[in-house]
Design a protein around this nucleic acid. Structure first.
Lengths: 211, 211
DNA sequence: GCAGAATTATGAACGTTGTTCAAAGGAGGT
DNA sequence: ACCTCCTTTGAACAACGTTCATAATTCTGC
């Protein structure tokens, strides 16, 4: 086979892993072209043969993070807590808490998913969007059972809303921007939030049904 | 009085306004020391007599933005929609929608409030924290009436949660990161979210009261 | 095997950053 | 007028992502 292409692929992999390690250790701002080159043993310029620019590299790291997140959520979904109420509610709570734990355990990598802004003009690649949709199914499926009379478009919209709400609580809670919140309390708040929304949904259904 | 100190103050003000204009027009990344200097008519170095570094400048701009946001929320709070349900619920909805509209009308300045990370090591100044607390009262007051049997610490915690949830929906919705959402739909989603949480709170109260 | 073509690696160089600093300038007091 | 102190200046610095002429390497056709 072509040993050069092979080598390139192996170097690209090494670059990806070096980038992932660096971000995990020092955050997105700690990612420098020269340091990456030193780490994988090549000249700075060579990086731009493996990758168009650092943005592409960051996007690829994000893709890996998203894949790991997907596995974490899948596990949570498969192992629903023996809850007292609707199993769909318990599943949503389990997924939300799994998201919370993943974010905390992978803080800089997780932040990179959202902090990173595309360079002016260029757009988010299509595969990144499809990865998002994959993630959302962990929420959309149980949610649909809590919104029996809603159309699939409404479920999709509210899936996004629900994710964003939980994400917001997590993102601001893990910042030091606002006053710090202990992690245990953060998980409790997220669980409370999810349960409240579910209660609201069920009550709303009941209300509408009663009419 | 000392005309030199006066002049300094006037220049500092000019710097602030130039920075605000620039961020509003070109985003936080468009803020450059050299351009600011040109705009207020001084040498680059002079900026560092008016301000410790660009971080301080950004923080000061943020303070102004926060003050305007406070006024916007105050207006919304004072003019509660003639709602069909609990007036506290209507007030929360009104504040959330006002927040939504402010964010949209001041997009880059609003983003700056959250995008900006403090330089490693330095901490958020105390006055910035107290400004946050001021904002939260718009949520905490109506919320307290929906959580009659909760302690003030619980109300404070959930105030933060509620703000973060709405903020999350807005922040992710105004990004192009996830698939774009039309603004009208975004407002509807936020209103739905707030109402659902309120319904959940009231239903929970009822549940607990019934026990 | 090997010469010529094509591709890839190299690191100095470029253009931008934020920030600093020696030198020049100007205000206030005696 | 002079000295002192503070301010202003813009060249200089360090660090950054990215590029590019040049050198090294690999591939290709014989």
């Amino acid at each position: 086979m072509a040993p050069v292409t092979d080598r390139r692929e192996r170097q690209r992999e090494a670059l990806l892993e070096a980038a992932e390690r660096t971000i995990a250790a020092k955050g997105l701002d700690g990612l420098k072209a020269r340091e990456l080159a030193r780490e994988i043993g090549c000249a700075v310029g060579a990086i731009y043969n493996l990758v168009a620019d650092l943005d592409e590299l960051i996007l690829r790291v994000g893709s890996r993070t998203l894949a790991r997140l997907d596995r974490a959520l899948q596990e949570a979904e498969a192992r629903p807590l023996p809850g007292s109420s609707d199993p769909a509610v318990e599943q949503l709570v389990a997924v939300a808490l799994a998201y919370c734990r993943f974010a905390r355990a992978n803080l800089p990598l997780w932040r990179t998913l959202f902090e990173h802004r595309m360079a002016e003009g260029s757009t988010v690649p299509e595969w990144a969007l499809s990865e998002q949709m994959t993630l959302f199914r962990h929420i959309a499926l149980p949610l649909a059972s809590l919104m029996p009379q809603a159309g699939s478009a409404d479920v999709a919209l509210f899936t996004r809303t629900m994710f964003s709400a939980v994400h917001g609580v997590l993102a601001l809670g893990l910042d030091e921007k606002l006053v710090a919140v202990p992690v245990a309390e953060l998980e409790r708040q997220i669980e409370t939030l999810v349960r409240l929304i579910c209660t609201g949904l069920l009550a709303g259904e009941a209300t509408r049904a009663r009419r």
